[in-house]
Amino acid sequence: MKKQIDELILALPSWVFLPIAIILSLIIFGVILVVNDKNPILVYHEIIITGFGSYRGLSETLTTSIPLILAGVGLSIAYKANLWNIGAEGQLYMGAIGAGIIAYEFSPTPVSLIGMFIFGFLFGGVWGLIPALLKRYYEVNEIITTLMMNYIAIHIMDYLVFGRWRDPTTFGFPFTPLLPDNMIIPRLLPGSRLHATVIIAIFASIAIYLLMYKTTEGYEIRVYGGNPEAARYSGINITKVLLLSMFLSGALAGIAGVGEFAGIHRRLTTGFSKGYGYTAILIAWLGSLNPIYVMVAAILFSGFVVGLDALQISIGLPFASIYLFEGILLIAILIREYAERVKARYV
C-alpha cells in the first residue's frame, strides 16, 4: 500500500499536492456531512455563496482573515527559521494587553490609537523574544516555552479584566470599559465590521515577503532554518537570526491582537481570541510559509469559516464543525509534507 502511494506521489508534479490535500479534506468532511444527513455539494455551494458571493459575506470574510493573515505571516517567519513558535495565541493576547495599557492607563490623546499599535507590536514581539532568548542562552526548547507562555498571557488578561481594568458598570461581568471613539480603529465599509487593520495586514504580508526573499536578513533567516550548520559555516550571526525572527513573529501576532481589540470587540474580555493564534499555524503551512500565499490562504479559509458559521444556524450543523474541518485540513496538509519528502528523496 505504502509502496503504491509512494509511486503515485512520484508520478505527480509537486504543485498538485496542495490542491489534493484540500480536496481530500473536503471529501472527508463531506462524509461527515452525509452522516449528518446533509448534502455536501449543497453545503459547499452554500458556503462559497455565503463566504464569497455577497457584499456582507465577503466583507465579513476579510474581517475574519485579518488576525489570521497577521499571525500566520508572523508564524511563517519563525517556521522559515525552523523555530516552532506555537505561541501566536499568547503573543496576540499580549499585543492586546499592550494596547490596553495605552487605553486604560493613560489619558486619551489624539495619537492614542497609534500608540496602541506600537505598544501591541512591542508587547507581542517581546513575548516572542523571551522564548528566543531562552533558546539561545539556555537551550530551552521553544515549542514548550511558546506554548506555555500562551497560558501566562491568557491569565494576565484574566487578571486584568477581572481586576484592575474591569468596567465598574457591567455588574460583575469580566469586561473592560468600551473604548472611546478616538481609540477605535476606523471601519472601511458601510454596514460591515471590516476595519483599517486589513490594510496593515496586506502591507505586512508584502513587507515580510520582501524581507524574506530580497534582503540579507531574510536570507540569513532562511539559511539558518534550512541548515543551522551552514549558517555557522557562513558566519551568520545566529543570535540575531533567532531574536529577529521570533520578535517579528510575535510582533505581528501582537498587531492582530490590537486589531481584534480596537477594531472588533472594542473592549477586552476573557476568552478574547477565538484561537486565532492556533488556527494561524494551520494557515502558515497552508500558505507554504510564503507570506503572499499565507495571505491568500487566510482569506480562503476565512471565507469557508464564515460560510460554515452562517450554515450552522440556517441548516443546523453542530457548532464544532469548524474545528472538525480545521483538524481534517491540518492532517491533510501534514500528509502533503510527507509527499514532498518522498518526492525530495528521489529527485
Binding site: R222, V223, G226, N227, E229, A230, R232, Y233
Partner: peptide, 13 residues
C-alpha cells in the same frame, strides 16, 4: 560538505 550547503535552497542561494 552538507555543513556548507542548504539543501532546500537553490544553487544560486
Amino acid at each position: 560538505i552538507l555543513d556548507g550547503l542548504v539543501l532546500d535552497m537553490t544553487l544560486t542561494e
